Simulated assay, not measured.
Amino acid sequence: MPSPTRLVVLVSGSGTNLQALLDACADESYGAKVVAVGADREDIAGLTRAEAAGVPTFTAKVKDYTSREHWDRALADKVGAFEPDVVVLAGFMKLVGTTFLDAFGGRTVNTHPALSPSFPGMHGPREALEYGVKVTGATLFIVDAGVDTGAIVAQTAVPVDDDDTEATLHERIKVAERAMLVDAVGKMAREGFSVEGRRVRFGG
Rank of each mutant, 00 (worst) to 15 (best):
T165E: 06
H112A: 03
G121L: 10
S12D: 03
V79K: 02
I173V: 10
T165R: 07
F119S: 01
D144C: 07
G13A: 02
P159I: 02
R172W: 06
M180N: 13
I44N: 00
T108M: 03
F193H: 06
T165V: 07
G132W: 01
P120C: 02
K94R: 15
D163S: 12
D27P: 08
T99D: 15
A32H: 01
A52H: 15
R201I: 06
E177G: 07
N17F: 03
R190G: 13
D162E: 15
T108G: 07
T136P: 11
L95H: 11
D102M: 11
T136C: 05
M122F: 07
H123D: 14
T111S: 09
T16F: 04
G15A: 12
F100P: 00
E171L: 12
G186K: 03
P125D: 04
A74D: 13
D27S: 14
V195F: 05
E130R: 14
G80Y: 12
T111M: 05
V153R: 07
V79L: 10
T136V: 00
R126S: 07
R172L: 05
S29L: 12
G192C: 00
P120Q: 06
A32D: 03
P84G: 10
G137Y: 04
G150E: 01
A151R: 07
V35D: 09
G46Q: 09
V34Q: 01
G192S: 10
K61I: 08
L7E: 08
G105E: 05
P4R: 11
L7I: 10
K187S: 14
V86D: 01
W71G: 04
G192N: 06
V88Q: 02
Y131K: 10
T16S: 15
D162V: 14
D164V: 07
G54N: 13
I152A: 12
S67I: 03
A184N: 08
P2D: 13
L75S: 04
D77S: 15
L169H: 06
T59K: 06
V133K: 01
V11D: 05
P4K: 12
V109R: 00
P56R: 13
V185W: 00
V37A: 09
G91N: 00
E42M: 04
G31K: 09
T149V: 12
R172E: 04
E166I: 05
R199P: 00
T108L: 02
I44T: 03
S194T: 15
R49G: 00
I173N: 02
D148I: 10
K61L: 13
A189G: 12
F100T: 08
L129G: 02
A60D: 01
E191T: 14
L140K: 10
T136I: 08
R201F: 02
D43F: 01
T16Y: 06
K134G: 14
A50E: 10
L75F: 10
K61Q: 13
W71L: 05
K174Q: 15
E177Y: 11
H170R: 14
A45Y: 07
T66A: 14
E191M: 13
A81E: 15
A157I: 12
V160D: 05
H112F: 11
L101N: 06
E196P: 04
A90H: 03
I142N: 02
L10N: 03
I44E: 05
